[in-house]
């Protein structure tokens, strides 16, 4: 049995830890603290937790005010509300100002599940990475989430961290080295490279195993910082394998796939394919069912890899 780690639970635990170490950490939520797990911070530090009610725009700009006064605010709600409902607040008061606000969402992508399309953010990466000054990150497991949150104590500037509702397979150990803007090679391979983020990293790792059984030696890169993206890692992969597949739980328009395509197109053109949500909204269903319906399974990733390899080899 693979070990699972909660992304949002890891977030809440990390907040409670750094909150004990640094009195400037404040946390704001919009009536979803039980879901985002900022409640774990709220329980320990009620004076530094601010529930803003169902008011995401006020949430974001108030967080900016805290940051302007020297605090390190974490502002959390579901991904669609953090980046969609409050987009222009994040733009004007957080990105434009370069303030140290950490917008940390949960419930991104279709693995939100039963709540359905209204609640499944498939465009948040696109929105956030289009904002100047904004750093955009997606943790691949709970350990990486914790490392990211700890990094936020010293990091300068606005950040969006895309969290999730579901537990992800544990990928990393406690000694995992996380660095903002640095891709991590999870597996070397010479036939093709999968570049993934978030939940799709563990899915892609399983895809690599499927491909191995078929005789393909496929590499996997965890691109946990979407912006600024690690161009060196992408170009290196393109040069070594000349076949790239991206995988993220996001619309194929504007997400990790687009970010990688931009680098490839400008610096090292090579064949690529994007595994992601094909420009359609999500639906209700269990997360597992939706992952299948929306073609985000390890089999879907391995199929995409073989398609690119065949195309590259002119078959």
């Amino acid at each position: 049995m693979e070990e699972l780690l909660g992304i949002r639970e890891s977030y809440g635990e990390a907040l409670a830890q750094i909150g004990a170490e640094n009195k400037d950490v404040v946390v704001l939520d919009a009536d979803l603290s039980g879901s985002t797990k900022t409640s774990l911070f709220a329980k320990k530090f009620p004076d530094r937790f601010f529930n803003m009610g169902v008011a995401e725009q006020d949430l974001m700009t108030t967080a900016a005010g805290f940051a302007a006064a020297g605090k390190i605010p974490f502002a959390s709600t579901f991904a669609i509300f953090a980046t969609g409902k409050a987009f222009e607040q994040v733009r004007q008061s957080i990105a434009y100002t370069k303030l140290n606000v950490r917008v940390v969402s949960t419930h991104s992508g279709i693995t939100v599940g039963e709540d359905g399309g209204s609640h499944q953010a498939i465009e948040d990466i696109a929105l956030m990475r289009s904002l100047p000054n904004m750093t955009v990150m997606v943790p691949a497991d709970g350990i990486e989430m914790k490392k990211m949150i700890r990094h936020m104590l010293d990091f300068k500037g606005p950040v969006y961290i895309r969290g999730a509702r579901n537990k992800y397979p544990k990928l990393f150990d406690d000694d995992y080295k996380f660095e903002v803007g640095k891709a991590v090679t999870i597996r070397e391979g010479k036939d093709a490279t999968v570049i993934a983020c978030g939940y799709m990293v563990s899915q892609s790792l399983k895809a690599c195993d499927i491909l191995k059984e078929k005789g393909y030696d496929v590499g996997l890169v965890n691109m946990s910082t979407i912006k600024p993206i690690d161009t060196g890692a992408i170009i290196h992969a393109a040069k070594v394998t000349k076949a790239i597949v991206t995988a993220d739980e996001h619309n194929v328009i504007g997400g990790l796939g687009s970010a990688v395509a931009e680098v490839l197109g400008e610096s090292s053109p090579c064949l690529m394919k994007r595994v992601g949500i094909k420009d359609i909204f999500g639906k209700s269903g269990s997360a597992g069912e939706l992952v299948k319906r929306y073609n985000l399974t390890p089999g879907d990733v391995s199929d995409a890899v073989m398609q690119v390899i065949r195309k590259r080899d002119g078959q």
């Binding site: 974001m60 005010g65 805290f66 302007a68 006064a69 605090k71 733009r91 004007q92």
Partner: peptide, 22 residues
Amino acid sequence: MSTGSLGQGLSAANGMALAAKL
């Protein structure tokens, strides 16, 4: 505070005032 998009200044001021109280 940078402003220009109407409607946001009071929220930002709230954040500053709450920080001062802390």
